[in-house]
Design a protein around this nucleic acid. Structure first.
Lengths: 214, 214, 214, 214
DNA sequence: GAGTAAACGAGACGGTACGTCGAGTCTTTTC
DNA sequence: GAAAAGACTCGACGTACCGTCTCGTTTACTC
């Protein structure tokens, strides 16, 4: 038994003998039902019934609907983010486009805003979400942006995560809060804004004709 | 809600006047319970009971929990946004700070992320939310930024709403999705990012020397 | 509104407006299911489903399965006990025979022993059982025996209820505890025993002569 | 159970010897839990857990909760019934008193009425109960009464078992069905009734005078 | 003494029913 | 003649045990 197997076994010991078939059936059914009825209409009762499993079996392994959904979503194959063109602007644009696609087209997109309601209520669930779902997906993009820093295209002073939060945040906020259209055009303008700024000077225009203090 | 919009509203008003007491009690109770138990734990049953009103009375006037909450929140006095310093950077910074305060400190802040789950499920509710709650609060800020354009501090080409979406979105996204700290520091860096950009050139650095300086 | 109606209304007020149709359906279904599956297999869930009623409706009006069953049984028409022959021995015999019939032939008979398990656990349920089911049925027999006292056939010193407890008890105990046959023969011998005793003297027999007084 | 009955039991014994510890622990735990929570609240799951035994081990040796309880109760030392005064009345009185004590004071007393519910549902269980628990206890009393016959105090025609059923039945029935007090007084009156009867004549009184005295 | 088969503890499993909660609708009573 | 009060049907909740079924692990008996 090699060292890696030893480590694995220790982990398995904590998770005491879960039935692989049931476990798979539950996660698969969850994914199915998420696509069919959405997060809000998904019930643990429904998952158990469709998966041919007792409710208690679901509750034994997952603390809540949210925990179950996060695990199911995490196991969906990530659309690989390998758009590494060697050009920051192009890469960031690709990243924003992907966010838009995921949010507006994929099952995950519709689930995410509903799921966040549970995240703010339950910090442990939020932790699970970030560790299991968000982090893996996000680090792929972070790495690509990081290369731009290494290439010298971006100052090392720039907070990459802030840029990503502003990108994703703008898209997400439009989609769920303001309801303004989330289009191709948004992607272009957003990348411009973040890379180039609004083009305002650091100080108000010269006092020559200034509205404020003379 | 702004000036009433015609015959329909007049009808509503006539009817509503009859049961003003119940109507007020329901909205007030909703505000109370929102603060006490949050959106998720708030139930129409609970509101009706505490307000001393039958459930049917609540359903007569509001289609859903969301509609009730939106109206209750809308009636809360808006913290007036009058930070009009005549300096774009300062004004935008004040706006971002306010968003942070509202989201992290006020009852509305905790309600909003939970409410959005319902908004994506119910477009009519989303419309109500935007018309009744979001628009009034947002337009105050928009006007202040607009003045910066008039002052010449900001190019008329800049999409003000996009800037606001990116500001609010970054804060919101951090708070509900990534869980990274939403602090004073975030406000400053975010405003810098949006006004000044990342400072990258439009093209990758000249191929002359390698990407990584020797 | 006559006096009796007044009294009734006051009672009805305590029981606030229960839906007559549901109420009847629940009791009727209970009676049906008792006969079909017995007390042990009867579930409130099953009653609600068959009666086309929500579980909560059942729980609103009855505190437990036992309470429901007692009320259902109480509403079954009592086989009238009017065997008033004017002869104590014949009347008591008829009474015992009826007990045997009820216990071994009727649905109530099979229910009773199972129900008693709940009675010993729940004194309030026991009270309900006695007031609603036992008392009405028992008092009919008591009255007939009482007439024998008035007729002079039975000493006023005899504790009628004890006689009845011994009659019913012997039958019941045989049926549920000892399992010895509960037959026609039992009825005759039991009545003899209770009316005539074992024929033993109050003192042990005189050593000299026979057991029975000369 | 009396002398072992052949090959089967020998096999059982051989097997049982292997796990005498578990076997004992299960029975002892059952006795404990019976006293603590009663028959109704006793669960096989609870017994297994407290006995430090797998559920399957319990099910391997006992077919049901009832079977387990009966065996546990049977192994409790019987309060020896040796009140053989040589006087029928005194002996029967002692027997009835003991029934009352057992029913109202001992753990067995509270268990019995709940157990009977299962006996009527399951004839095999009833057989086990009678062979293992009832018969040994009852035969002690029967023997004492039998001596009264031999002594000449009681006619050989008297059905001893019927007398005992009426005694035990009256007590049992009062306790679980009618709920009337089960007291010392009951014992005396009951013995009088059974030995002496009600003192009624075999025929109704002469028609000379009316039934009701003038 | 080693090998082997059973019985073992542990507890996961598919189920059934529990009793509760709230949703949204419908009915009766009251002002 | 509307609105209070709240009963209604419905569906899901999360829990408790049922009795069955793997899992490794003793353990006691062959060989």
């Amino acid at each position: 038994v090699g060292p890696e197997a030893g480590a694995d076994d220790r982990g398995d010991e904590r998770i005491r003998r879960r039935n692989a078939r049931s476990h798979r059936a539950i996660l698969d059914t969850t994914t199915e039902l998420l696509a069919e009825v959405g997060y809000g209409q998904l019930t643990i009762e429904g998952v158990a019934a469709r998966a041919g499993v007792g409710k208690a079996t679901v509750y034994r392994w997952w603390a809540s609907k949210g925990a179950l959904v996060i695990e199911a979503m995490s196991q969906q194959p990530t659309v690989p983010f390998d758009t590494d063109t060697g050009n920051l602007r192009a890469d960031l644009l690709a990243a924003v486009r992907r966010m838009i696609d995921v949010l507006t087209d994929s099952p995950e997109g519709t689930v995410l805003p509903e799921l966040t309601a549970d995240l703010v209520r339950d910090p442990r669930l939020a932790d699970q979400f970030r560790a299991q779902f968000l982090r893996p997906r996000r680090s792929a993009i972070e790495k690509v942006i990081q290369k731009a820093v290494e290439r010298g295209e971006l100052s090392p002073d720039v907070d990459i995560r802030l840029v990503l939060d502003a990108s994703a945040g703008a898209v997400f906020y439009r989609y769920v809060v303001t309801g303004e259209p989330v289009t191709e055009d948004l992607a272009t303008k957003l990348v411009s804004l973040l890379l180039d700024g609004t083009g305002s000077t650091r100080e108000p225009p010269q006092p020559a004709a200034g509205q404020v203090r003379p």
